[in-house]
Nucleic acid binder design. Structure first.
Lengths: 228, 228
DNA sequence: TAAATAAAATTGGTCTGACAATATTATACC
DNA sequence: GGTATAATATTGTCAGACCAATTTTATTTA
């Protein structure tokens, strides 16, 4: 006689996951319907439904109302949910997060230059030009700044690195930070200098500029910490 | 009259999450029971249960059989599940992952040295000594190697950085890589040299050794790519 | 009175059956 | 063949029941 230490739902979840991986199912593949799973696993519809709901929550399955069950496209949304919970519980030291971001960006420069990756310099320049325009027009500058840094990460052509960098940025998006309005032009120039350094394949120069680029933020954080 | 575009379960999930965050509930706080939620949200037990299951899957709630519902301690387990799905779907270029790991470790050295963090040198030495012993005794070396690198990350005293590094390592644990048995002694010496470099606060030297430390792995990867 | 034990109440786990809402498929029509 | 319609399949929600695990309360005992 078998000892049922875990719940039926957990068992169902395990068996469904195993099936997906052993049969190498890919995103958007149609999966079994609830009824089929009931027959296959010999449990009630309740158990099947709760297993499906659970697998949907972590982005493994996608249940379409009236349309059936499908293997889901891996998204970072559930991770965002999880990080949000973590943030809400532990909080996050803004300084720690900025240090992490700095390391990620310095690392991107290293990956690009040491591996001699071909970078679309014009694209970076175009983004930075748009950034310049928003500064001049006194519009919202955040968008193009973010795009510039994102493009820098993507330029590594390392999708794994991009994924994790994206997670860090997701985490960052949960934090509110008052940004100073001065220094925008300086940031623009630093972007430009980074592009130049990348073109020259000078890691040291690129990283030096990047560190300068982060300095005002750390100065701000330092001030905040002193004030409290 | 309201249009019900999302499912009741999704609405329940949102309302429960909102309640947790707005009331600033912390891990291990007792949450409402199913019955209470039924009265509160005016939906069937099915809907409540599916919402709870979903929130449990992403590590926000913990449902204890017979004991009630609690706010969960943030864990990385759900993220591990998600990354595993991602890995199984897209695969992961081992080279990309190792590059990411290298960046993380180089970054750790930078954080430690530039911020002049006090590092427990003796602890690192002790771990490396244990590593040495397992080499000599021809036992499993992986454990102490992993502990050494983990300690290096933790030495940054940047918990945010540690969290993300842990995710990368979780991802790494999914990948099987044949490691060569030679070069273990070299690795031991490199660990030791890193410790020395940290003690001297020499970022350049520490990073140089770390890069040397990763070289054989990249060489291996390079060979594998050539062979296929 | 305090601790150990037993009973009761609470709470989550699973099952069944039913009907509604939605998506897919088959059919009839032009 | 294409389109509108009907039939079918599938998921969403509800209600009620019973079991299992846990907690609370009551009772007994030292």
């Amino acid at each position: 006689m078998a000892i049922q230490k875990t719940s039926l739902v957990d068992i169902a979840i395990d068996r469904i996951k195993s099936y997906i991986y052993e049969h190498n199912l890919k995103p958007n593949d149609k999966f079994f319907s609830e009824k089929e799973l009931i027959n296959k696993l010999q449990v009630s519809r309740t158990v099947i439904r709760e297993a499906l709901i659970s697998l949907q929550a972590v982005g493994i399955l996608q249940v379409k109302s009236g349309g059936g069950v499908y293997v889901a496209e891996p998204k970072l949304d559930p991770i965002h949910t999880i990080l949000k919970h973590r943030y809400s519980t532990y909080g996050v030291k803004i300084k720690e997060l900025m240090q992490t971001r700095e390391i990620i960006e310095l690392g991107a420069l290293r990956l690009i230059i040491e591996n001699q990756i071909d970078v679309d310099i014009d694209h970076l320049k175009a983004l930075n030009d748009s950034y310049y325009e928003t500064i001049m027009k006194n519009e919202d500058t955040k968008k193009y700044d973010r795009l510039f840094h994102e493009s820098l990460i993507k330029a590594t052509q390392n999708t794994t690195y991009c994924t994790f960098a994206e997670m860090v940025n997701e985490y960052f998006s949960l934090v509110k930070i008052n940004e100073k309005e001065d220094g925008l032009l300086l940031a623009y120039k630093q972007h430009d200098e980074m592009i130049e350094a990348i073109r020259e394949r000078s890691l040291q120069r690129a990283q030096q500029v990047m560190k300068k680029h982060f300095e005002p933020i750390f100065y701000l954080i330092h001030q905040m910490e002193d004030n409290k």
